[in-house]
Design a protein around this nucleic acid. Sequence first.
DNA 1: ATAAAAATCACTAAAAAAGGGGATAAGAAT
DNA 2: ATTCTTATCCCCTTTTTTAGTGATTTTTAT
Lengths: 208, 208
Amino acid sequence: MKTSVFIVDDHYMVVEGIRSLLQTEQEIEWAGHAMNAASCLAFLKQQLPDVILMDINLPDKSGIDLCKEVKEQYPSVFILGLSTFNQQSFVNKMMDNGASGYVLKNATQNELMEAIQAVAKGKTFLSDEVVSSLNESKAAQPVLTRREKEVLELISEGLTNSEIAEKLFVSVNTVDTHRKNLLAKLEAKNTADLVRLAIRHHFISAHK
Amino acid sequence: MKTSVFIVDDHYMVVEGIRSLLQTEQEIEWAGHAMNAASCLAFLKQQLPDVILMDINLPDKSGIDLCKEVKEQYPSVFILGLSTFNQQSFVNKMMDNGASGYVLKNATQNELMEAIQAVAKGKTFLSDEVVSSLNESKAAQPVLTRREKEVLELISEGLTNSEIAEKLFVSVNTVDTHRKNLLAKLEAKNTADLVRLAIRHHFISAHK
DNA sequence: ATAAAAATCACTAAAAAAGGGGATAAGAAT
DNA sequence: ATTCTTATCCCCTTTTTTAGTGATTTTTAT
Protein backbone atom coordinates (compact mmCIF):
# COMPACT_ATOMS: atom_id res chain seq x y z
CA MET A 1 0.00 0.00 0.00
CA LYS A 2 1.27 3.40 -1.02
CA THR A 3 2.04 6.20 1.40
CA SER A 4 0.46 9.50 0.38
CA VAL A 5 2.57 12.57 1.04
CA PHE A 6 1.52 16.21 1.17
CA ILE A 7 3.94 19.13 1.35
CA VAL A 8 3.61 22.56 2.92
CA ASP A 9 6.45 24.85 1.89
CA ASP A 10 6.48 28.33 0.48
CA HIS A 11 9.64 27.70 -1.51
CA TYR A 12 8.65 26.65 -4.95
CA MET A 13 12.06 25.19 -5.66
CA VAL A 14 11.95 22.98 -2.60
CA VAL A 15 8.47 21.71 -3.47
CA GLU A 16 9.64 20.89 -6.98
CA GLY A 17 12.75 19.24 -5.62
CA ILE A 18 10.83 16.97 -3.30
CA ARG A 19 8.27 16.20 -5.95
CA SER A 20 10.96 15.10 -8.36
CA LEU A 21 12.71 13.09 -5.69
CA LEU A 22 9.51 11.27 -4.75
CA GLN A 23 8.42 10.72 -8.35
CA THR A 24 10.84 7.85 -8.73
CA GLU A 25 9.61 6.11 -5.60
CA GLN A 26 7.04 3.38 -6.07
CA GLU A 27 5.71 3.39 -2.53
CA ILE A 28 4.97 7.09 -2.49
CA GLU A 29 1.91 8.86 -3.76
CA TRP A 30 2.03 12.62 -4.26
CA ALA A 31 -1.05 14.09 -2.57
CA GLY A 32 -0.25 17.69 -3.46
CA HIS A 33 1.27 20.77 -1.90
CA ALA A 34 0.42 24.05 -0.21
CA MET A 35 2.47 27.23 -0.10
CA ASN A 36 1.02 28.44 3.20
CA ALA A 37 -0.78 27.33 6.34
CA ALA A 38 -4.24 28.44 5.22
CA SER A 39 -4.32 26.43 2.03
CA CYS A 40 -2.86 23.47 3.87
CA LEU A 41 -5.79 23.49 6.31
CA ALA A 42 -8.21 23.92 3.41
CA PHE A 43 -6.73 20.91 1.66
CA LEU A 44 -6.97 18.72 4.74
CA LYS A 45 -10.74 19.31 4.89
CA GLN A 46 -11.01 17.53 1.54
CA GLN A 47 -8.40 14.85 1.85
CA LEU A 48 -6.10 13.36 4.48
CA PRO A 49 -2.60 12.29 3.45
CA ASP A 50 -0.58 9.80 5.47
CA VAL A 51 2.37 12.11 5.96
CA ILE A 52 2.77 15.88 5.78
CA LEU A 53 6.18 17.40 5.13
CA MET A 54 5.95 20.74 6.83
CA ASP A 55 8.36 23.66 6.54
CA ILE A 56 8.72 25.62 9.75
CA ASN A 57 8.98 28.97 7.95
CA LEU A 58 5.65 29.77 6.39
CA PRO A 59 4.37 33.17 5.31
CA ASP A 60 1.11 33.27 7.25
CA LYS A 61 1.80 31.11 10.31
CA SER A 62 4.78 29.28 11.73
CA GLY A 63 5.04 25.60 10.95
CA ILE A 64 5.23 25.05 14.68
CA ASP A 65 1.74 26.48 15.21
CA LEU A 66 0.37 24.80 12.13
CA CYS A 67 1.73 21.49 13.34
CA LYS A 68 -0.18 21.82 16.58
CA GLU A 69 -3.44 22.72 14.84
CA VAL A 70 -3.22 19.93 12.33
CA LYS A 71 -2.42 17.37 15.00
CA GLU A 72 -5.34 18.53 17.14
CA GLN A 73 -7.80 18.26 14.28
CA TYR A 74 -6.33 15.23 12.53
CA PRO A 75 -4.37 13.14 15.02
CA SER A 76 -3.92 10.31 12.54
CA VAL A 77 -1.71 12.34 10.19
CA PHE A 78 2.01 12.07 10.74
CA ILE A 79 3.99 15.25 10.41
CA LEU A 80 7.60 15.52 9.40
CA GLY A 81 9.23 18.89 10.15
CA LEU A 82 11.31 20.35 7.36
CA SER A 83 13.80 23.16 7.62
CA THR A 84 16.98 24.61 6.23
CA PHE A 85 18.38 25.25 9.65
CA ASN A 86 19.29 22.94 12.42
CA GLN A 87 17.85 24.96 15.28
CA GLN A 88 17.56 23.13 18.53
CA SER A 89 14.61 25.13 19.79
CA PHE A 90 12.60 24.60 16.60
CA VAL A 91 13.15 20.87 16.64
CA ASN A 92 11.96 20.69 20.23
CA LYS A 93 8.89 22.82 19.58
CA MET A 94 7.88 20.82 16.54
CA MET A 95 8.22 17.57 18.44
CA ASP A 96 6.31 19.03 21.39
CA ASN A 97 3.52 19.98 19.03
CA GLY A 98 3.13 16.48 17.73
CA ALA A 99 5.58 16.16 14.87
CA SER A 100 6.98 12.68 14.33
CA GLY A 101 10.30 13.78 12.93
CA TYR A 102 12.53 16.48 11.60
CA VAL A 103 14.52 16.51 8.38
CA LEU A 104 16.90 19.10 7.03
CA LYS A 105 16.54 20.35 3.49
CA ASN A 106 19.99 19.15 2.60
CA ALA A 107 18.85 15.58 3.19
CA THR A 108 19.57 13.02 0.50
CA GLN A 109 16.84 11.13 -1.31
CA ASN A 110 17.64 8.10 0.84
CA GLU A 111 17.40 10.00 4.06
CA LEU A 112 14.11 11.58 3.04
CA MET A 113 12.63 8.22 2.07
CA GLU A 114 13.84 6.69 5.30
CA ALA A 115 12.21 9.50 7.23
CA ILE A 116 8.89 9.30 5.41
CA GLN A 117 8.67 5.55 5.79
CA ALA A 118 9.59 5.71 9.46
CA VAL A 119 6.99 8.33 10.40
CA ALA A 120 4.33 6.65 8.21
CA LYS A 121 4.70 3.68 10.55
CA GLY A 122 4.36 5.92 13.57
CA LYS A 123 8.03 5.93 14.38
CA THR A 124 10.16 8.95 15.22
CA PHE A 125 12.83 10.13 12.81
CA LEU A 126 15.47 12.81 13.23
CA SER A 127 18.20 13.62 10.71
CA ASP A 128 21.62 12.44 11.84
CA GLU A 129 22.80 16.02 11.82
CA VAL A 130 19.92 17.05 14.05
CA VAL A 131 20.61 14.26 16.52
CA SER A 132 24.30 15.04 16.81
CA SER A 133 23.81 18.76 17.31
CA LEU A 134 21.11 17.93 19.82
CA ASN A 135 23.62 16.03 21.90
CA GLU A 136 26.26 18.72 21.58
CA SER A 137 24.02 21.54 22.61
CA LYS A 138 22.56 19.67 25.54
CA ALA A 139 25.65 20.25 27.66
CA ALA A 140 25.98 23.97 27.17
CA GLN A 141 22.39 25.14 27.22
CA PRO A 142 21.74 27.10 30.41
CA VAL A 143 18.31 26.96 32.01
CA LEU A 144 16.62 30.29 32.66
CA THR A 145 13.55 30.87 34.77
CA ARG A 146 10.46 32.66 33.49
CA ARG A 147 11.35 35.80 35.35
CA GLU A 148 14.92 35.76 34.16
CA LYS A 149 13.83 35.52 30.55
CA GLU A 150 11.47 38.42 31.13
CA VAL A 151 14.25 40.55 32.59
CA LEU A 152 16.62 39.49 29.83
CA GLU A 153 14.15 40.59 27.20
CA LEU A 154 13.81 44.03 28.77
CA ILE A 155 17.56 44.41 29.20
CA SER A 156 18.01 43.70 25.51
CA GLU A 157 15.49 46.38 24.70
CA GLY A 158 17.71 48.90 26.42
CA LEU A 159 15.82 49.36 29.68
CA THR A 160 17.84 50.10 32.80
CA ASN A 161 17.39 48.23 36.05
CA SER A 162 15.20 50.94 37.50
CA GLU A 163 13.03 51.05 34.39
CA ILE A 164 12.64 47.30 34.50
CA ALA A 165 11.83 47.42 38.21
CA GLU A 166 9.07 49.94 37.54
CA LYS A 167 7.67 47.87 34.71
CA LEU A 168 7.61 44.64 36.68
CA PHE A 169 6.50 46.24 39.96
CA VAL A 170 9.51 44.95 41.89
CA SER A 171 12.45 46.66 43.52
CA VAL A 172 15.65 47.59 41.72
CA ASN A 173 17.49 45.14 43.96
CA THR A 174 15.44 42.28 42.63
CA VAL A 175 16.10 43.18 39.05
CA ASP A 176 19.75 43.53 39.92
CA THR A 177 19.80 40.03 41.34
CA HIS A 178 18.16 38.61 38.23
CA ARG A 179 20.70 40.44 36.15
CA LYS A 180 23.56 38.96 38.15
CA ASN A 181 22.10 35.50 37.78
CA LEU A 182 21.76 35.99 34.05
CA LEU A 183 25.38 37.07 33.75
CA ALA A 184 26.44 34.02 35.72
CA LYS A 185 24.22 31.53 33.93
CA LEU A 186 25.21 32.66 30.45
CA GLU A 187 28.81 33.18 31.56
CA ALA A 188 28.72 36.68 30.16
CA LYS A 189 31.37 39.27 30.93
CA ASN A 190 28.94 42.17 30.89
CA THR A 191 25.68 43.40 29.37
CA ALA A 192 26.98 43.56 25.80
CA ASP A 193 28.21 40.01 26.02
CA LEU A 194 24.97 38.96 27.68
CA VAL A 195 22.82 40.25 24.85
CA ARG A 196 24.98 38.63 22.20
CA LEU A 197 24.92 35.27 23.99
CA ALA A 198 21.21 35.53 24.67
CA ILE A 199 20.57 35.99 20.96
CA ARG A 200 22.92 33.14 20.15
CA HIS A 201 21.03 30.84 22.53
CA HIS A 202 17.72 32.04 21.07
CA PHE A 203 16.43 33.32 24.38
CA ILE A 204 15.68 36.54 22.59
CA SER A 205 15.57 37.52 18.96
CA ALA A 206 17.46 40.39 17.37
CA HIS A 207 14.70 40.85 14.85
CA LYS A 208 11.70 42.40 16.56
CA MET B 1 21.80 28.87 -28.78
CA LYS B 2 21.25 27.26 -25.41
CA THR B 3 22.25 28.79 -22.11
CA SER B 4 24.20 26.40 -19.90
CA VAL B 5 23.44 26.64 -16.22
CA PHE B 6 25.45 25.35 -13.27
CA ILE B 7 24.21 25.27 -9.69
CA VAL B 8 26.04 25.55 -6.39
CA ASP B 9 23.78 24.71 -3.46
CA ASP B 10 24.22 22.38 -0.56
CA HIS B 11 20.50 21.66 -0.34
CA TYR B 12 19.81 18.58 -2.34
CA MET B 13 16.11 19.37 -2.54
CA VAL B 14 16.73 22.79 -4.00
CA VAL B 15 19.12 21.41 -6.60
CA GLU B 16 16.54 18.82 -7.57
CA GLY B 17 13.84 21.45 -7.67
CA ILE B 18 15.76 23.70 -9.99
CA ARG B 19 16.81 20.80 -12.16
CA SER B 20 13.23 19.72 -12.61
CA LEU B 21 12.12 23.29 -13.28
CA LEU B 22 14.77 23.79 -15.93
CA GLN B 23 14.24 20.38 -17.53
CA THR B 24 11.17 21.61 -19.33
CA GLU B 25 12.92 24.64 -20.74
CA GLN B 26 14.25 24.31 -24.30
CA GLU B 27 16.76 27.16 -24.08
CA ILE B 28 18.46 25.83 -20.97
CA GLU B 29 21.19 23.25 -20.75
CA TRP B 30 21.95 21.68 -17.39
CA ALA B 31 25.71 21.87 -16.87
CA GLY B 32 25.70 20.18 -13.47
CA HIS B 33 25.81 21.06 -9.82
CA ALA B 34 28.11 21.33 -6.82
CA MET B 35 27.25 21.04 -3.15
CA ASN B 36 30.10 23.24 -1.95
CA ALA B 37 32.55 25.91 -3.03
CA ALA B 38 35.50 23.56 -3.51
CA SER B 39 33.80 21.27 -5.98
CA CYS B 40 32.38 24.28 -7.78
CA LEU B 41 35.88 25.64 -8.38
CA ALA B 42 37.05 22.19 -9.44
CA PHE B 43 34.24 21.96 -11.96
CA LEU B 44 34.99 25.36 -13.44
CA LYS B 45 38.54 24.25 -14.28
CA GLN B 46 37.03 21.69 -16.63
CA GLN B 47 34.09 23.54 -18.04
CA LEU B 48 32.61 27.04 -18.04
CA PRO B 49 28.84 27.43 -17.91
CA ASP B 50 27.11 30.62 -19.05
CA VAL B 51 25.34 31.18 -15.76
CA ILE B 52 25.98 29.98 -12.22
CA LEU B 53 23.15 29.88 -9.70
CA MET B 54 24.92 30.33 -6.41
CA ASP B 55 23.52 29.84 -2.93
CA ILE B 56 24.95 32.24 -0.39
CA ASN B 57 25.00 29.64 2.39
CA LEU B 58 27.57 27.03 1.59
CA PRO B 59 29.26 24.63 4.00
CA ASP B 60 32.90 25.45 3.25
CA LYS B 61 32.82 29.08 2.13
CA SER B 62 30.21 31.79 1.85
CA GLY B 63 28.64 32.27 -1.55
CA ILE B 64 29.73 35.88 -1.27
CA ASP B 65 33.40 34.93 -1.15
CA LEU B 66 32.99 32.25 -3.78
CA CYS B 67 31.30 34.77 -6.05
CA LYS B 68 34.30 37.07 -5.83
CA GLU B 69 36.78 34.29 -6.55
CA VAL B 70 34.86 32.94 -9.50
CA LYS B 71 34.43 36.38 -11.01
CA GLU B 72 38.13 37.13 -10.61
CA GLN B 73 39.16 33.92 -12.33
CA TYR B 74 36.37 33.70 -14.86
CA PRO B 75 34.95 37.16 -15.54
CA SER B 76 32.85 35.91 -18.44
CA VAL B 77 30.59 33.79 -16.24
CA PHE B 78 27.43 35.43 -15.01
CA ILE B 79 26.45 34.71 -11.44
CA LEU B 80 22.95 34.74 -10.05
CA GLY B 81 22.76 34.83 -6.25
CA LEU B 82 20.27 32.46 -4.68
CA SER B 83 18.94 32.53 -1.16
CA THR B 84 16.02 31.71 1.06
CA PHE B 85 16.22 35.00 2.83
CA ASN B 86 15.85 38.49 1.59
CA GLN B 87 18.77 40.00 3.46
CA GLN B 88 19.72 43.43 2.30
CA SER B 89 23.38 43.14 3.26
CA PHE B 90 23.82 39.85 1.44
CA VAL B 91 22.29 41.18 -1.73
CA ASN B 92 24.64 44.16 -1.66
CA LYS B 93 27.70 42.05 -0.99
CA MET B 94 26.89 39.61 -3.76
CA MET B 95 26.37 42.43 -6.24
CA ASP B 96 29.56 44.13 -5.04
CA ASN B 97 31.43 40.90 -5.66
CA GLY B 98 30.31 40.72 -9.24
CA ALA B 99 26.97 38.90 -9.17
CA SER B 100 24.57 39.90 -11.92
CA GLY B 101 21.42 39.23 -9.98
CA TYR B 102 19.70 37.82 -6.94
CA VAL B 103 16.73 35.47 -6.79
CA LEU B 104 14.86 34.13 -3.79
CA LYS B 105 14.20 30.43 -3.47
CA ASN B 106 10.48 30.96 -3.47
CA ALA B 107 10.70 32.27 -7.02
CA THR B 108 8.34 30.82 -9.60
CA GLN B 109 9.53 29.01 -12.68
CA ASN B 110 8.80 32.13 -14.74
CA GLU B 111 10.74 34.39 -12.47
CA LEU B 112 13.71 32.05 -12.43
CA MET B 113 13.72 31.79 -16.23
CA GLU B 114 13.42 35.53 -16.57
CA ALA B 115 16.38 35.95 -14.23
CA ILE B 116 18.58 33.41 -16.00
CA GLN B 117 17.86 34.86 -19.40
CA ALA B 118 18.47 38.39 -18.21
CA VAL B 119 21.85 37.69 -16.63
CA ALA B 120 22.91 35.47 -19.55
CA LYS B 121 22.62 38.61 -21.67
CA GLY B 122 24.70 40.56 -19.21
CA LYS B 123 21.75 42.34 -17.65
CA THR B 124 21.03 42.77 -13.95
CA PHE B 125 18.12 40.97 -12.34
CA LEU B 126 16.69 41.27 -8.85
CA SER B 127 13.55 39.53 -7.59
CA ASP B 128 10.63 41.88 -7.17
CA GLU B 129 10.60 41.10 -3.47
CA VAL B 130 14.28 41.98 -3.19
CA VAL B 131 13.81 45.27 -5.00
CA SER B 132 10.91 46.36 -2.85
CA SER B 133 12.60 45.52 0.44
CA LEU B 134 15.72 47.23 -0.87
CA ASN B 135 13.80 50.46 -1.22
CA GLU B 136 12.19 50.11 2.18
CA SER B 137 15.40 49.49 4.04
CA LYS B 138 17.37 52.18 2.28
CA ALA B 139 16.10 54.89 4.60
CA ALA B 140 16.98 53.27 7.89
CA GLN B 141 20.38 51.68 7.28
CA PRO B 142 23.05 53.61 9.19
CA VAL B 143 26.56 53.87 7.76
CA LEU B 144 29.40 52.86 10.05
CA THR B 145 33.08 53.51 9.46
CA ARG B 146 35.72 50.78 9.49
CA ARG B 147 36.87 51.74 12.95
CA GLU B 148 33.37 51.92 14.32
CA LYS B 149 32.61 48.40 13.14
CA GLU B 150 35.81 47.23 14.75
CA VAL B 151 34.90 48.82 18.06
CA LEU B 152 31.35 47.53 17.81
CA GLU B 153 32.62 44.00 17.35
CA LEU B 154 34.78 44.24 20.45
CA ILE B 155 32.00 45.79 22.51
CA SER B 156 29.73 42.90 21.57
CA GLU B 157 32.40 40.48 22.73
CA GLY B 158 32.19 41.99 26.17
CA LEU B 159 35.35 44.10 26.19
CA THR B 160 35.30 47.34 28.16
CA ASN B 161 36.45 50.65 26.73
CA SER B 162 39.85 50.37 28.36
CA GLU B 163 40.33 46.82 27.10
CA ILE B 164 39.40 47.91 23.61
CA ALA B 165 41.74 50.90 23.83
CA GLU B 166 44.59 48.60 24.77
CA LYS B 167 43.82 46.23 21.94
CA LEU B 168 43.60 48.94 19.30
CA PHE B 169 46.51 50.99 20.66
CA VAL B 170 44.43 54.13 21.10
CA SER B 171 43.30 56.05 24.15
CA VAL B 172 40.19 55.27 26.14
CA ASN B 173 38.78 58.63 25.10
CA THR B 174 38.91 57.62 21.46
CA VAL B 175 37.11 54.38 22.09
CA ASP B 176 34.58 56.30 24.14
CA THR B 177 33.94 58.66 21.25
CA HIS B 178 33.45 55.78 18.85
CA ARG B 179 31.05 54.24 21.31
CA LYS B 180 29.05 57.45 21.55
CA ASN B 181 28.92 57.71 17.78
CA LEU B 182 27.73 54.12 17.55
CA LEU B 183 24.97 54.77 20.06
CA ALA B 184 23.91 57.83 18.08
CA LYS B 185 24.10 56.21 14.64
CA LEU B 186 22.14 53.13 15.63
CA GLU B 187 19.83 55.21 17.83
CA ALA B 188 20.49 52.86 20.72
CA LYS B 189 19.54 53.66 24.29
CA ASN B 190 22.56 51.88 25.78
CA THR B 191 24.98 49.05 25.22
CA ALA B 192 22.39 46.29 25.44
CA ASP B 193 20.23 48.01 22.88
CA LEU B 194 23.29 48.67 20.73
CA VAL B 195 24.28 45.03 20.55
CA ARG B 196 20.76 43.92 19.70
CA LEU B 197 20.43 46.52 16.96
CA ALA B 198 23.90 45.75 15.64
CA ILE B 199 22.95 42.11 15.26
CA ARG B 200 19.66 43.08 13.69
CA HIS B 201 21.46 45.24 11.13
CA HIS B 202 23.97 42.45 10.53
CA PHE B 203 26.96 44.54 11.52
CA ILE B 204 27.89 41.69 13.79
CA SER B 205 26.73 38.12 14.16
CA ALA B 206 25.46 36.51 17.33
CA HIS B 207 26.81 33.18 16.18
CA LYS B 208 30.59 33.09 16.44
C1' DA C 1 4.99 17.80 54.45
C1' DT C 2 9.01 19.15 53.33
C1' DA C 3 12.85 19.99 50.55
C1' DA C 4 14.34 22.53 46.51
C1' DA C 5 13.94 26.19 43.35
C1' DA C 6 12.49 30.72 42.23
C1' DA C 7 11.57 35.30 43.32
C1' DT C 8 11.99 38.77 46.28
C1' DC C 9 14.70 42.62 48.86
C1' DA C 10 19.00 45.06 51.10
C1' DC C 11 23.63 47.38 51.55
C1' DT C 12 28.28 48.81 50.01
C1' DA C 13 32.00 50.01 47.00
C1' DA C 14 34.33 50.07 42.71
C1' DA C 15 34.15 50.08 37.78
C1' DA C 16 32.13 51.31 33.59
C1' DA C 17 28.99 53.69 30.61
C1' DA C 18 26.35 57.72 29.20
C1' DG C 19 25.81 62.58 28.26
C1' DG C 20 27.65 66.99 27.76
C1' DG C 21 31.08 69.82 26.02
C1' DG C 22 35.16 70.88 22.73
C1' DA C 23 39.57 70.14 19.85
C1' DT C 24 43.24 68.63 16.36
C1' DA C 25 45.36 66.15 12.45
C1' DA C 26 45.21 63.41 8.19
C1' DG C 27 42.98 62.07 4.06
C1' DA C 28 39.38 62.03 0.66
C1' DA C 29 36.40 64.42 -2.18
C1' DT C 30 34.72 68.58 -4.83
C1' DA D 1 41.95 75.39 -2.02
C1' DT D 2 38.72 74.18 0.94
C1' DT D 3 35.16 71.47 2.83
C1' DC D 4 33.82 66.88 4.73
C1' DT D 5 34.84 62.72 6.86
C1' DT D 6 37.40 59.92 9.76
C1' DA D 7 40.12 59.08 13.52
C1' DT D 8 42.17 60.74 17.25
C1' DC D 9 42.25 62.92 22.02
C1' DC D 10 40.68 65.50 26.54
C1' DC D 11 37.67 66.90 30.72
C1' DC D 12 33.71 66.73 33.75
C1' DT D 13 29.36 64.89 35.83
C1' DT D 14 25.82 61.73 36.48
C1' DT D 15 23.86 57.38 35.89
C1' DT D 16 24.24 52.59 35.54
C1' DT D 17 26.42 48.36 36.02
C1' DT D 18 29.25 45.01 38.33
C1' DA D 19 30.86 42.38 42.38
C1' DG D 20 30.42 40.75 46.88
C1' DT D 21 27.38 39.02 50.68
C1' DG D 22 23.34 37.94 53.00
C1' DA D 23 18.47 37.04 53.80
C1' DT D 24 13.20 36.24 53.45
C1' DT D 25 9.10 34.72 51.17
C1' DT D 26 6.59 32.24 47.68
C1' DT D 27 6.11 28.38 44.42
C1' DT D 28 6.98 24.02 42.80
C1' DA D 29 8.03 19.33 43.00
C1' DT D 30 8.67 14.84 45.39
